[in-house]
Nucleic acid binder design. Sequence first.
DNA 1: TTCTATCTTCGACGAACATCGAACGATCGG
DNA 2: CCGATCGTTCGATGTTCGTCGAAGATAGAA
Lengths: 120, 120
Amino acid sequence: MIDRMAAATHPAMEDLDLPTVMHALADPIRLGLVRLLSDGEERAWGDLDAPVANSTLSHHLKVLRSAGITRTREEGKRCFVRLRSDDFEGRFPGLLDTTLALAAEAGTGVADVRLHSAAA
Amino acid sequence: MIDRMAAATHPAMEDLDLPTVMHALADPIRLGLVRLLSDGEERAWGDLDAPVANSTLSHHLKVLRSAGITRTREEGKRCFVRLRSDDFEGRFPGLLDTTLALAAEAGTGVADVRLHSAAA
DNA sequence: TTCTATCTTCGACGAACATCGAACGATCGG
DNA sequence: CCGATCGTTCGATGTTCGTCGAAGATAGAA
């Protein structure tokens, strides 16, 4: 679980470059995740329903986190994810908002990521 | 040369999806090319000075073209490239402008693509 | 402690990618 | 014609990526 003692490693925004961020946003699943989180609310890891195995989902969340796009918080046995909007906006102004607007539309190749039954 | 008779193949904007576009923008060289073209002016292929072999440059330009980001025109023996801003803006509003603004800044991991000596 | 739920990491696989040099084809100038 | 120029395409190479299942690690419950 993310190495509970070191907490999920979040990069400093100034260490990120544009290609890295673009690459993180260049996958249907990851875009689906970003879209699901677009309201700024925090979501429980276990509530995420993506069409891939858990190990793959974990990988995608790591890529997003490594690109400064999301933040992960640990609480006991569970994890919670949300966008890192403020920090990100400071480093890459406009990019997240623009991407969210585009990902919100249909027919853009964004994967169908939703919440399991118990939508909060 | 792009098959002179069929002209460089440009995709219809409605056939493009977001992951494809993001992927095209997730490479330092391609971002450098986009930045060089950011003023909307047309550039001669042969004037492009990127830190890769010609065959690689050709590949990158094809990726950008396939993603609807650039347009290629052929004139006799030479080629000219420019951004496909209008079409692109219609399909992915704000994305190109936002990317251009970010790519214009230093320290964002964008490759140094410029013009050969004879800048036009 | 032992079991269970939760997420990460490992190891492996095929596919896709960036890169190069060489070969190709088309065009234009002698 | 012949040769030079221009850009694409081919073939090869090493890397990265997305994906999975299995194994690992942690925290809480029994």
